[in-house]
């Protein structure tokens, strides 16, 4: 198969899964005729009709709550929230309803539901359209969290997410949508909780997610020019977390940099760093470093946004710091 974009990969996957499960429903804003603001659902309304591709009014709470109600009563559902910045509008339905339904009912409720959304800065969308909020959901028991970094993973992980009987936050990144990758013919699924070692290295482990995997790989290439071999791990899912992959790498490199685009304060790096010091303290030759956004809302102006969001330089600097070089 020729190379396809991240968006095309998602669209193809949704289409295939809708063909596979005749009850699978999509629900979200502008996902019908318009095809979704990023074009992910283009053509699906025409193919599957308005009951299975439900384009909604601007009602985020109702989107999530009705997806939940439908999922609980036998309709597997993929809900789309246009920006992760809109999830706080529907936070009760995500946190108090969706995440808790199975547990609170003693396992009686089954919630086969995916919340597709996208996050990230870099395009001048300012404070309410650029956030990375995955850490909010990591803090809530009952949600699986998937963060694909490339078109190949997007497809394999989305299939797994749709077929899962639990609520899954499927968090995409707006800067990845146009990126291309090759996808094999035929079906494949990527299981949750299986990190991907994107680059082998012996000197330092770089743990990354989503778009930051791309940035980390660029940083690793620069480090290689200076003779530093970085191992880059793409976590792919935060819940479940493949901590074994991190542990194994840390035992070899003894140094770790965790990279994410969300705020450093209370970010996923804090949790991972805590687990590393609990499980691998004796293997560490330097404190665990975290690279994340500065603790402010994402500003509009380009130099300001660039100053806040982590980049290659920040990762290179952090890697050298844990290696006590430069």
């Amino acid at each position: 198969m020729p190379e396809i974009t991240f968006v095309e990969s998602l669209r193809m996957t949704l289409k295939e899964e809708m063909e596979r499960d005749p009850s699978l429903m999509l629900i979200g804003e502008d996902i019908g005729r318009y095809g979704g603001i990023f074009g992910v659902t283009k053509g699906l309304l025409e193919e599957f009709g308005p009951h299975r591709v439900r384009s909604t009014p601007i009602s985020e709470s109702a989107i999530i709550g009705s997806a939940l109600g439908a999922a609980m009563t036998g309709i597997r559902t993929v809900a789309e929230l246009m920006y992760i910045d809109f999830t706080p509008v529907a936070m009760d339905q995500i946190v108090n309803q969706t995440a808790k339904m199975s547990y609170m009912s003693g396992g009686k409720a089954k919630v086969p539901m995916v919340i597709r959304t996208q996050e990230g800065g870099g395009r001048g969308n300012a404070a309410q359209h650029s956030q990375c909020l995955e850490a909010l959901f990591l803090h809530i028991p009952g949600l699986k969290i998937v963060m694909p970094s490339n078109p190949y993973d997007a497809r394999g992980l989305l299939k797994t997410a749709i077929r899962d009987d639990n609520p899954v936050m499927f968090i995409e990144h707006k800067l990845l949508y146009a990126t291309k990758g090759s996808i094999p013919d035929g079906e494949y699924l990527i299981p949750f909780g299986q990190a991907d070692i994107k680059r082998k290295g012996k000197d330092v482990t770089i743990v990354a997610i989503s778009y930051m995997v791309t940035v980390a790989l660029k940083a690793a290439a620069r480090l290689a020019e200076e003779g530093i071999e970085a191992e880059v791990i793409d976590l792919r899912t935060l819940v479940p977390l493949d901590f074994d992959a991190i542990l194994q790498s840390v035992r070899n490199t003894n140094r770790v940099v965790i990279v994410h685009e969300g705020c450093r304060t209370g970010g996923i790096g804090a949790e991972i760093a805590a687990q590393i010091q609990e499980e691998a303290f004796d293997y560490l030759d330097a404190p665990v470093a975290r690279v994340g956004a500065l603790n402010v809302p994402i500003p509009y102006s380009e130099p300001l946004e660039n100053a806040v969001i982590p980049d290659e330089d920040d990762i290179v600097r952090a890697a050298k710091k844990v290696l006590y070089r430069g």
């Binding site: 009951h51 609980m72 036998g74």
Partner: peptide, 25 residues
């Protein structure tokens, strides 16, 4: 019985979802 809610108004969208499910099935 799809469950009760400790959040006032929390159940309304869930009932709508059950309605969607009925309509689709």
């Amino acid at each position: 019985n799809l469950g009760a809610n400790g959040i006032v108004g929390g159940g309304l969208p869930i009932a709508v979802g059950a309605g969607i499910s009925i309509q689709n099935r």
